[in-house]
Design a protein around this nucleic acid. Sequence first.
DNA 1: CAGTGGTCTAGACCACACT
DNA 2: GTGTGGTCTAGACCACTGC
Lengths: 245, 245
Amino acid sequence: MSLISEPIAAFSPLYEQIKALILASLQASEWLPGEAIPSEMELAARYAVSQGTVRKAIDELAAQNLLVRRQGKGTFVATHQEDDWQYRFLRLEPDSGKKLHLKNQFLACENMVSDAHIAQLLNLIAGDPIIRIDRIQSDAGRPIVFEEIWLPEVRFKGLTLDALNAWAGPMYAFYESQYATHMVRAEEKIKAVLANSRLANHLQVTEGAALLSVERVAFTYGNKPVEIRHARYDTSEQHYDNKLN
Amino acid sequence: MSLISEPIAAFSPLYEQIKALILASLQASEWLPGEAIPSEMELAARYAVSQGTVRKAIDELAAQNLLVRRQGKGTFVATHQEDDWQYRFLRLEPDSGKKLHLKNQFLACENMVSDAHIAQLLNLIAGDPIIRIDRIQSDAGRPIVFEEIWLPEVRFKGLTLDALNAWAGPMYAFYESQYATHMVRAEEKIKAVLANSRLANHLQVTEGAALLSVERVAFTYGNKPVEIRHARYDTSEQHYDNKLN
DNA sequence: CAGTGGTCTAGACCACACT
DNA sequence: GTGTGGTCTAGACCACTGC
């Protein structure tokens, strides 16, 4: 009888390896968000494979929203600074169908040490330094969202309330331009909760009103969690919109 | 100066046309859910294109979850009857991480006429006949979900409470096997609401408890809406799980 | 016009499932 | 072994962008 050992590494097609190489370059900031990566022909030459193989690798990265293809122009590193990506992860929509125009109001930005829960979510150790931010987002003067945000202090060193208040655009564009941190994906856990007095005050609803609780973990390249958010949405006149495929 | 008319029909690549042809066959039930479609070679011959072009068409349909590729076996029409697709559209998960084992309890199944709201969502006219179903889903004896469901009577003729109670599996597998209706995608609008006495009673929570309200429209082939659901989830020990990419 | 991504082809070969 | 989907290649040509 023959001795056939279990394959340690499963078969990995060439384009998967190319994908990994491109990903490594993204992670190493060889090409920055918004910039063009080399053309398919150049990459094919660099990796010594055919254009079709590079193409398949890029296709998959584009499907995961890591790259953006633009015919005639090139392939670009995805960025949260583009107009149509500004609110890529925001699923809240007014019932009326109009568009939300959210304005930030930052309440706090303080350095502290993480508890066990936040530490675990961020792959840190309880007691590691973190930054905690509170903010309210309003549409036409009406508060809609109250959010608590936790960030690892190592990555977001020196972040202050003043810096936040000086920034007009969305949070993830801020992280990208100020801290070279691009968010790739996020996971959310949604519940219905009752407003306590603090939440009621922030969102100008009555105590005991129903609010949507949204806990988010956001990840950069390499599946690294770098932001925790706990949001409460007032869904009396807006809803969380989701598509199932 | 030259007179250049706007292109009426934009350029449409071959594989898009093949995609449309395959879609038409699916919609016409030429191949039923769970069945294999012809091999790539056969389809290439049938449509007189290369295998690569058929491949790209199938790739995109598989990405939309309309087809399922299985190496060495063939390409199959997606079905809700497969084990791992049973709860493809259910995003509710226990906080504990365990799996939910939901048991159905159907409360009502009655014929009625649609109001303007439901009619509009189902592309019907107010007054058209519809079927309305109430059900409760429980996990380990605890009611978790209360749902109202509306179906167009034309498509689901003769549906009775007894038929529902005789069915053990998930709803969309039932529609598929009994009414030749396969659900392709769905849209959900989520809010937080307070339990009124009726909801409190169904879900065994106190009046004024916070509940997740989930309004779903589900579509078959050809973007045709064929089911409306309004669910209320008790999220005290479970949450709605969502991934953002 | 040159350069980029996008389409289409034809053919060779690999991995996997079934028999 | 045969048939299926999966990978990879090389080359031709099309569509779009910007100089």
